[in-house]
Amino acid sequence: MDGFENAFALLLDGRGGARPLTLEETRSWRASDGMLWVHLPPDLPDLPRVLEAVFRLPPQVREPLLADTGRVRIDVLNENELVLLLLHPDSTPPDASSPRQLRAWMTADRCVTVAPTSQHAIVAVREQLAHGRGPRGTDLFLAFATTAISTAALRTSELDDTLSGLETRFEARRDDTADVPGDLRRLRRTLVEQRRFVSLVRDAILRVSLLTVEWVHAQQRELRQMAERAGGALKEMDALVERARILHEDIKARQDARSQRILYMLTIISGVFLPLSFITGLLGVNLGGIPGRHWRGSFLLLVLVLVVLAAAEWRALRRRELV
């Protein structure tokens, strides 16, 4: 689109392809021309004015498109218009400068999306249209949902491989497994975020499938299939989260056992040296009458007595299987 960096407009041809339009051409667009998809980045200068003046969107449409929320939101404006707010996992947590949402206003013949142009859903659907394998019209939402679920499936496979590697390193008891707890903490955070994303995608599909909008109702079968795929992906994520939890418990149990062994050995050592320390402390007082102070062999005799006492204590502990 002229003058708008990272923004674009595509006119779908109804056969899986699309051709780009300029800003002037979008102003003269008519519903009979075909499905129009206009994409605007959220950092576009004066975006509210653009939505109002250029695309003539009413306030009830502009406000949701400019809103920021941490959940899925679907508003039915009338029997033909939807406003969708979906979360995507390929950016940082939402804030004023870095939104992670895909916001869309959709009708039977027009769609306006507000999201980072580099967002995977936008890039993937745009590439599909460029190769003639994209949506044909009102199934644009299905294309976004399919891309999101496919991305989640690939990400789930990557996380599964990462978790399997951590499990293998832990079970192998190698010396270089000291970084496993840190890697597992990062992986568990990623799993929680990914599971939330899959859950939100599934909720969005289910909510859209329950709408009575006519052009949405025509896609009920595809929406049900997508919801089932999302449900399956959610179960896989739950399984990964459970495996990560079990691995965390195993690591914690091993760390606790190691700490207990160390404390036990320190207790044994303290027990062995306690009588020896008592004797040497008693003989080290600065008072007269210490036995053997005038005999030159008294020190060696004391050392021998301490060694024998330590050996006897150690043998007694061994007989009781304490060490």
Rank of each mutant, 00 (worst) to 15 (best):
E52M: 07
L86E: 12
P58M: 09
G281A: 07
L154K: 11
P64R: 03
E63K: 11
S199Q: 08
D68L: 14
L263F: 12
F8N: 08
T280Y: 00
D139E: 09
L309R: 04
L102Y: 02
L301P: 00
S277V: 01
R188K: 12
E313A: 10
D90T: 10
V285C: 02
Q260T: 12
T107C: 04
D175I: 08
M35T: 05
V285I: 15
G137V: 11
R189E: 12
D238C: 06
D256G: 06
R110S: 00
R133T: 14
D183Y: 05
L304K: 05
G16F: 00
A312C: 04
R126A: 11
M106T: 00
L211D: 00
S118M: 06
T280W: 03
V76C: 12
F55T: 08
V112A: 02
T212S: 15
E313F: 07
R195L: 07
R196L: 12
Q260D: 15
V308P: 02
E25P: 09
M106E: 04
T147G: 07
F197C: 05
C111V: 14
E167R: 03
R185I: 14
R100K: 14
F278Q: 03
L23N: 02
T147L: 01
E249D: 15
A152Y: 02
F278M: 14
F55E: 04
N286A: 12
V76E: 13
L187Y: 03
V305L: 14
L77F: 10
R27D: 07
R188F: 05
I246T: 11
L163H: 06
A227H: 08
D46P: 01
T92L: 15
R207M: 09
T212W: 03
V114C: 06
P94R: 11
F170N: 02
H217N: 08
R62Y: 09
A257M: 11
R49M: 03
H39V: 08
W215M: 09
A104L: 15
R56M: 09
P291N: 01
T190I: 06
V180S: 04
D43L: 11
L159H: 08
I246A: 11
Q260I: 02
A7S: 13
V123F: 10
R315Q: 05
G70S: 10
I122W: 08
E236D: 13
T162H: 11
A143V: 10
W105S: 04
R62G: 11
F55G: 07
